[in-house]
């Protein structure tokens, strides 16, 4: 399951980040690393990106990038 499948208002624990290069590094630099809890706050009015809370602050992630974030079921 990836972060994209997590519903608004739910929390998920990150298992692994897929992919490589700049996008992956950026996701990790922003604090989305193995074991962290991510809360999906809302979806943008046009359906993408999503707003999540991680490590106490708000982050906007595109759905396509959210697919790289594998979470625990």
């Amino acid at each position: 399951m990836t972060l994209r499948d997590v519903k608004v208002g739910e929390t998920a624990k990150v298992k692994k980040i897929d992919g490589e290069g700049a996008v992956k590094r950026r996701i990790m630099d922003m604090g989305i690393t193995k074991g962290v809890e991510v809360f999906v706050r809302k979806i943008a009015p046009l359906g993408d990106p999503v707003e999540i809370t991680v490590r106490g602050y708000e982050l906007s992630v595109r759905k396509a990038d959210a697919e790289m974030i594998i979470v625990e079921e």
């Binding site: 700049a22 996008v23 602050y57 708000e58 906007s60 992630v61």
Partner: peptide
């Protein structure tokens, strides 16, 4: 080049 990641902070 590398695709630009759109992982953006939404500051308070």
């Amino acid at each position: 080049g590398d695709p630009a990641p759109f992982v953006m902070e939404l500051p308070a």
